Computed example of a mutant assay.
Amino acid sequence: MAFSIFSNKNRIINLVLNDHSIRFVELKQVDPPIAQKWNERFLPPGIITEGKITDIDSLTNILEECIDEWKIGRRQVRFIIPDPLVIIRKVSVPSDIQDDEIKGYLYLELGSTIHLPFEEPVFDFYMLEKNGKNRDLLLFAAPEQYVMEYANLFSTLKLTPVVADISPLALYRLYHQLNQPAKNEVLFSAQFDLTSVNMSIFEGTVPLVMRQFPLSFDIDKWEMKRDDTGTVHFKYIGDTEDLVYQFEDILKEINKLSDYYRYSLSKEKRAVSKFLINGDHPLLQAILDEMKERLEVPVEMISLELGAKDKGGSTPAKLFLSLGLALKEVQ
């Protein structure tokens, strides 16, 4: 059982904040992944916008209430860097640069030979294959200013940020834990949330590309209810044609990214071999059914059959991202 040598107050908590929610999971065990505790809080529009904190006072007050209500004060925290802030880019470095020199080289080249749409990034990288005089790597980057706003907020509220992760890796970690991926699998992961869709394509365990597609969200067109477990449920009360058009736009973006991977990124012109669907969108099952009808390759959802029997039921699918985050550095 994971973390069995620690007392409750020392267990790391896992927080996911996006434009419309705060979610938290505390891991009970790793195999199979089971949540010890979990909870969520809906965020009204305008507090976080496209991943950036736009109303720090309101977010501070709400998060302070959550910490008190969920009894997670003075804990270490893993958190997800919001998808709109993250860029994944393939870059090349000279082959003669030693592994322990690569990060310094990247620092020097950012802004000159390596261009990002923001200054002063925080970044990490993953080495790919050598390519003659160069070595390819994947660069994962986000603007330091906005990432540190989250870290500083947690610190202000007496939480200690210890790990920052990105959602495609967190979800793939859970998928890999629960499934045995096929050999040479090319996985298209699509995270359908209430206000956005995040798409990424994996070769093996490596996310080669990621795209963020925002969804228009009018809170007046959704009816919100909270059940006895604290889970928030949404029911659409607007014109269903609007959702149909929205899905058609998403499907076009999925097809465009699939083609981009096959004809521009894949050296062997390989195609996507599986779609993995997840997220907190209230119509996720309908989206899954429609994609199964439209696409010629398998479309699946992450299945957690042995999920946590906490609060009288299994861990909701909307918490899977937090659960995947909880598996970081414990596998």
Rank of each mutant, 00 (worst) to 15 (best):
N8P: 11
I13M: 03
I13T: 01
H20Y: 06
V30K: 15
D31K: 15
N39L: 03
R41L: 06
F42Q: 08
G46E: 02
I47A: 03
I48A: 00
I48K: 01
T49S: 13
E50I: 00
E50S: 14
G51P: 02
K52F: 06
I67E: 02
K71I: 04
R75Q: 13
Q98S: 14
D99E: 15
E101C: 08
Y107L: 08
L110N: 04
I114R: 04
H115N: 12
L116H: 04
Y126L: 11
Y126T: 12
M127A: 12
M127I: 11
G132F: 02
N134S: 05
R135G: 02
A142I: 01
A151I: 04
A151L: 05
F154R: 00
P161T: 07
D165F: 05
I166F: 10
P168A: 09
L169W: 06
A170Q: 05
A170E: 03
H176R: 15
N179F: 12
A182W: 10
K183C: 02
E185D: 13
S189K: 09
S189Q: 15
D193F: 11
S200V: 06
I201P: 01
I201L: 03
F202E: 00
G204P: 01
V206S: 06
V206Q: 06
L215D: 09
D220V: 07
K221V: 04
K221L: 10
M224P: 07
G230H: 05
V232N: 07
D239F: 10
D239I: 06
T240E: 09
T240P: 00
L243F: 09
F247K: 07
E248Q: 12
K252A: 03
D259H: 10
Y261I: 01
R262W: 03
I287R: 03
E290F: 09
M291A: 07
K292W: 07
K292L: 04
R294G: 00
L295G: 01
L304T: 08
A308Q: 12
G313F: 07
S314Q: 13
T315Q: 05
L321N: 11
L321G: 14
L327Y: 02
